[in-house]
Amino acid sequence: MRGLNYTFAETADAAVTQFAEAGGSARYIAGGTNIYDLMKLGIERPAHLIDVSRIEGLDAIETDGDVLRFGGRALMADVARAPVVRDEYPVLAESLLKAASQQLRNMATVGGNLLQRTRCMYFRNGAGSSTTVGVYLCNKREPGSGCAALGGLDRTQAVLGTSEACTAVAPGDWPVALAAMDATIEVFGPEGTRNIPIADFYLLPGDTPHREFNINPGELVTAITVRKTPAGRTSTYHKIRDRESYAFALASAAVAVEMDGDAVRTARIALGGVATTPWRASAAERVVVGSSLTPELALEAGHAAFTEARPGQHNAFKVELGARVIADALIIAAQRRV
């Protein structure tokens, strides 16, 4: 890691100005749990870090109006325990509480978490830093260089949304819940404020896996908004991992439903751990909407989410596991109706 300048920005305007002045060598840092990690791994090499974690008002958690509005630098731990989130939107609270560890949730912000980069081991452990040993090709790190994960140990790689250039899984839990809840991402940058539907925020790898987010240089995530809905109450984030806690998802599902008796009126289903982006499973939603929710139908919905899956050598189990995670999540969510 090279030496760097570290400055604080007091306002979003100041952050953007500092970013522009740094001339392309800058990165924003909020909690730092991802970017500092990536710096140690030799993946990010900023010469200037602009700390946005003290920007006034950017940590606000507003739950009074028609929308839930989370400031970009609100801590994951704080959003998870905000009363309305905890009581009315279990899918959001659980996605936060099942992520990382309590220490990291006290550091990481809900805005920064949207930009967390993949846990693909070839991406992370192959940049030749002193903390790791491997040197692996990666199209995310160096566009066009190749992908060592192809033909490699792919047990934890994605089965949905992959390309010939990249099979890296989108790592987040919170973005999956937000995808199910049709959140909007507010970013602020040199060109002012943009509001981006979460469906448009994450980019499929295609031929350009280094382009992961619909965000421009110098732009800062200032807020996340979620339109209030009664479906929030009838929701869950179900996550299966290689151990009971403190691990990324092998497969996860964010599910929110509105029930009409035993019948499903609306369903929102998104997947984590199995796809290259937070993955909205519309096909699964179509299976259950308008029908009585039975375990059999829930599993059918789960399978419908994976009809396009393209498993590799060691990760085919994610297709069946993911289907069952959806099935279980649907039942859990539906049982939460008052």
């Binding site: 570290y6 604080f8 730092g32 870090l49 974690s53 560890s101 990291l104 006290n106 550091m107």
Partner: peptide, 14 residues
């Protein structure tokens, strides 16, 4: 509040 000091940049504790 508990944090991981290895991922907390020293500059942040000012």
């Amino acid at each position: 509040r508990p944090v991981s000091s290895c991922l907390t940049m020293a500059a942040k504790v000012d």
